[in-house]
């Protein structure tokens, strides 16, 4: 059976996030006014906070995962800022302890009695929005591949690494399909590394989430991304079904023309590992 390994401190797994930082990420996201780069950075910071909470135990955050955030735009490299700047895979406890800063964010929330009330929350930030340069997706995938390859060599029995690629445009340094498949050739005894792709849209169109065929996809670029994406393992498919999504047996970890909701959902489902105790 694959994708069933126990994730523990003794046998951790890893996430590699690839974040498109090309100039077009400056454009507003489809159906919204925020810049795509801002939305993606925000979603990633939220996710890192969520993972930290999920792995928090009595004695602190456990290193169930190691996490890398790789940006690709004018350069390809770690997208962490602050104390973790320049690092690739970082144990989750260190991620949790070392954000670049903790922002105080004020927002108006319902007070439960029909009114609104202002409240302030502390929001840790690890990744800042960047939008500058081209889209060297092949190089980004090659970086992910080397991290994944190294990981499976050190943890041959772990839950396989998961690579999540968030992009808004076509690769500018060649056909990414080969590099994408190369990522997925690295395996542990529990299965092959997973690569999920999400395309953020600037257009206000209907998102395509976790399709199981590419026939309804609008262009060859979308079909390429589809072909690059791994099948969703059963537990993620099950979780997606619980979330009310219609996902088939052959659903791929791929979203096209994603809006904010789809982005958050994609990250939630795509980082859903086996049960953590």
């Amino acid at each position: 059976m694959t994708y069933a390994a126990e994730i523990s401190r003794a046998n951790p797994s890893c996430f590699v996030f690839l974040v498109d930082q090309s100039a077009s990420m400056n454009d507003p996201i489809g159906g919204g006014r925020q810049r795509k780069a801002d939305v993606v950075a925000d979603a990633l910071n939220r996710l890192l906070a969520e993972l930290s909470v999920k792995c928090a135990k009595e004695e602190g955050v456990r290193d169930y995962f190691h996490v890398a955030v790789i940006g690709y735009g004018h350069a390809v490299g770690s997208a962490f800022t602050g104390p973790l700047a320049g690092r690739d895979l970082v144990p989750l406890s260190q991620v949790a302890d070392q954000p670049a800063r903790v922002e105080k964010r004020t927002k108006k929330v319902p007070d439960g009695a029909g009114g609104l009330v202002e409240t302030t929350t502390r929001f840790p930030v690890w990744v800042d929005p960047v939008a500058h340069g081209a889209t060297p997706m092949c190089r980004a995938l090659a970086t992910a591949e080397s991290l994944v390859s190294d990981w499976v060599a050190r943890h041959p029995d772990s839950f396989p690494p998961i690579v999540l690629n968030l992009t808004d445009g076509e690769s500018t340094d060649g056909d990414p399909a080969g590099a994408a498949w190369a990522v997925q050739t690295h395996v542990t005894a529990d299965g092959a590394a997973l690569l999920f792709n999400l395309h953020v849209s600037a257009a206000n169109t209907v998102p395509v989430t976790f399709p199981d065929t590419d026939v309804a996809l609008p262009d060859t670029y979308a079909r390429t991304l589809f072909g690059m994406s791994s099948l969703l393992p059963p537990h993620m498919r099950f979780y997606a079904l619980q979330q009310g999504l219609q996902v088939g047996d052959l659903a791929r970890g791929f979203c096209y023309n994603a809006d904010i909701t789809t982005l958050v959902q994609f990250l939630d489902i795509g980082t859903r590992a086996t049960d953590l105790r």
Partner: peptide, 12 residues
Amino acid sequence: MTTSPSSTSTSG
């Protein structure tokens, strides 16, 4: 294939 759902329910 599906579009973004707005509500959550279980299969039960």
